[in-house]
Design a protein around this nucleic acid. Sequence first.
DNA 1: GCGACAG
DNA 2: ATCTTGTCGC
Length: 227
Amino acid sequence: MHIAHRQRWDVTPKEAVQIQQRLRGKIMMGLSAPLPRHPLIAGADISYDKGSNKLFAAVVVLRLPSLEAIDTVTFVDRARFPYVPGLLSFREAPVLLECFKKLRRAPDVVMIDGHGLAHPRRFGIACHIGWLLDVPTIGCAKSILVGDYRRLGLRRGAHAPLIHKREVVGCAVRTRTGVQPVYVSIGHKIDLPTAVRLALRCAPRFRIPEPTRQAHLLVTQLRLANG
DNA sequence: GCGACAG
DNA sequence: ATCTTGTCGC
Ligand SMILES: [Mg+2]
């Protein structure tokens, strides 16, 4: 797929924060267009080898509702930015975008391992990648960066708003009964209820929705095969 | 100043 | 993110 090449990545952490503050207003909440009946959903994740300082990235494309694999791409590159909470996209997005470039066809939705609006400046990695791709994107994180939530039902499908500074920034979503929730937030061009429904549709069996779960399994294999 | 802190 | 043994529950 074609990627708008409108972001410099060789920046300092201070510049990165300024970029986030400038781009936060560009995020589109709400679906840009209705999703197809059987949407293609891409999952993206990274693995890291500290010995070689390399990032192993993968994007897998699945089709709903069957979750059958449609396409898979990978890319390996040197890490050029440290992990700083709140600045994850400056570390992980460049190599993930290389993966998206290799995709033959643009997915209808993208799911990123990390937050979107549930971020101190409302511009997590799912917002950043969604904006650069100009595709509906959701963040699906395994732990909280900012905010908190109250009473969450124990059953699969239960969800509760994630609140930060009196704003709803996402949703805690129970994808498996009695198991720790995942945290879903808007990345770009999508609304929160749709994002939550998609995450649940993508997680019929495991806590982690299949798109990011498959991407995670793949990058782990890739790292162990290379290093 | 202190604690929190996606991956 | 990675490292790392055993342990618990379906
Ligand atoms: Mg990850």
